[in-house]
């Protein structure tokens, strides 16, 4: 029985260390909330009238201009698809260079990681401003901003998926005399294709939402209409456009889910 007691004591002390870690994380989270004024009850109390005012102006949503939204919505759809295509084309090779198990050497791998981090750390709205300055207003700067920023994110997720593949099939291919590229194409990618597709389709949906924001800096699509309505403070049109975007996001998501089922 004393052996039992010793084991249970060791287990309990491990449990206490675990709890101490959880408590530390909680403390940091609470401190961050406090530092950003989350516990300032007065500000929340003052916010109520404004929130009530805006929500009452948002209701009922105004769909009277729906015909003039169709073209921008179609533009946004095109932007989201084009941005996703751009992201995939650059993400896949970069991910293969950035994943430990497919990179040619450590230097290249670290460099690819660095490039991905850099692309990720430039917010797409900043890229949008830069590309609007470079190629002018419209959908094109939006596509470039979405695509390039997403390479950083998608490439990282792709690389992680590739790193989590089972090394055994790759070993079997190597044992059969396959070269590095053959191993990647025939033993690694078949394992992760459904995951890569998941990441891509999620990103497509994200691009649809993100391109609405890019309208702020003049990058075309439904975001342009949204900003115009916001500037005019016609909140009933704002809520109408937001609902139209929601409907499109749901449609994009359903399409993605249908594609995903076929790719299993």
């Amino acid at each position: 029985m004393s052996r039992h007691a010793a084991i249970l004591a060791a287990d309990a002390s491990a449990g206490r260390r675990h709890m101490a870690m959880v408590a530390a994380v909680l403390a940091v989270a609470v401190a961050a909330l406090a530092a950003t004024g989350f516990f300032d009850a007065e500000r929340f109390a003052d916010a109520w009238p404004a929130v009530r005012q805006i929500s009452s102006e948002m209701f009922p949503p105004d769909f009277s201009r729906w015909q003039s939204w169709l073209k921008p919505l179609a533009d946004t759809l095109a932007m989201s698809i084009a941005g996703t295509a751009l992201a995939v084309v650059f993400s896949l090779p970069l991910a293969l260079l950035a994943a430990v198990n497919t990179a040619p050497n450590v230097a290249v791998q670290q460099l690819a990681r660095l490039l991905l981090s850099f692309l990720r750390s430039v917010p797409e709205i900043i890229m949008g401003i830069l590309f609007v300055a470079a190629v002018g207003f419209g959908a094109l700067p939006g596509v470039l901003a979405l695509g390039l920023h997403s390479v950083g994110m998608v490439g990282k997720f792709y690389a992680e998926a590739i790193e989590h593949t089972d090394p055994r099939p790759a070993e079997a291919a190597r044992a059969a005399g396959a070269g590095p590229l053959q191993i990647i194409v025939s033993a690694i990618l078949p394992q992760v294709l459904p995951q890569l597709a998941d990441i891509t389709l999620y990103r497509w949906e994200y691009h649809f939402r993100a391109s609405a924001v890019l309208g702020i800096v003049g990058a075309g699509g439904i975001g342009f209409e949204l900003i115009a309505a916001l500037r005019l403070m016609s909140y009933d049109q704002v809520s109408g456009i937001l609902l139209a975007i929601l409907a499109c996001v749901v449609a994009v998501d359903a399409t993605g889910a249908a594609l995903r089922r076929r790719l299993r």
Binding site: R3, H4, I7, L8, A10, D11, A14
Partner: peptide, 22 residues
């Protein structure tokens, strides 16, 4: 509970793995 943990250790003892319990 403590009693349940004791029972788990008894079971591990029966299969000869008490020293690997953790």
């Amino acid at each position: 509970s403590r009693a349940e943990r004791e029972r788990a250790l008894d079971a591990l003892d029966r299969v000869g793995l008490l020293d690997r319990a953790l």
